[in-house]
């Protein structure tokens, strides 16, 4: 029996704009297996973030078909997609996207706010996730009291606390120095594997080189998809 792919994209096209149409993606087909770790690379404006948004059901494509764990995004209701994002998909963003008025612990708990988790379990899992990223002692600190690397680790804890089957990271090291970036990538790789797929968007070739599979986009088209022998 063949396992259902974590992500399955068939001839995805994406256009923006009403008067002037801009094509961001064209005929992109891709399949990510459960637990597979993959880098999505390409120059700025090549459509990496747009493709990640489609994978994460944040956008519906203009053309083609997307399935997330077998769920057809095009025909799924808003509630179904929201449940997928709440329970099955974890996001890590380049700009961290932490709530400025919530503590580190509050931000991690917020990641579980829309999943079917009781408040007490929410607190328990958030505390454990913060400990996993080495920030147990910074739980009550506001984002403004944390360094960039620490903020990104809070964001990773927020994504991992819900124990998603798909982890999507959009340039997670883009705003970090080398040391912090290394730590963040280590955490993401630790969090991935087994049944948790990871798609990491980066234009950093060295970072992409650490991942077993590299998919390259250029001008909205998939130009390379191969395994990485060095990983």
């Amino acid at each position: 029996m063949t396992a259902v792919p974590a992500l399955e994209l068939e001839k995805i096209g994406m256009e923006f704009g009403r008067t002037v149409r801009v094509r961001a993606l064209s005929e992109v087909s891709l399949s990510i297996a459960p637990g597979e770790v993959c880098a999505l690379t390409g120059p700025t404006g090549s459509g990496k973030s747009t493709l990640l948004a489609i994978m994460g059901t944040l956008e519906r494509p203009s053309a083609g078909r997307v399935r997330v764990e077998g769920v057809d995004v095009a025909t799924a209701r808003d509630r179904t997609l929201a449940r997928l994002r709440a329970q099955r998909i974890g996001f890590v963003f380049q700009t961290f996207q932490l709530h400025p008025r919530l503590s580190a612990l509050g931000n991690v708990e917020q990641g579980l706010a829309y999943s079917a988790v009781s408040p007490s379990e929410r607190r328990e899992r958030a505390v454990a996730a913060l400990a996993d990223v080495g920030l147990a002692d910074r739980a009550e600190h506001l984002p403004t009291q944390l360094s960039g690397g620490e903020q990104q680790r809070v964001a990773i804890a927020r994504a991992l606390a819900k124990e998603p089957s798909i982890l999507l990271a959009d340039e997670p090291t883009g705003n970090l120095d080398q040391a912090a970036a290394e730590m963040v990538v280590d955490l993401l790789l630790e969090g991935a594997g087994r049944q948790r797929a990871l798609v990491l968007v980066t234009h950093n070739d060295a970072l992409a080189g650490r991942l077993p599979r590299v998919v390259r986009l250029e001008r909205g088209r998939l130009v390379a998809d191969g395994s990485n022998a060095a990983a």
Binding site: D78, R79, A82, R85, A86, A113, S115
Partner: peptide, 16 residues
């Protein structure tokens, strides 16, 4: 808008 987008990314429905 960012907070609303974040909430939607974390699983909030339109109704939420």
């Amino acid at each position: 808008r960012p907070e609303i987008g974040l909430a939607r990314a974390l699983g909030a429905t339109r109704a939420d």
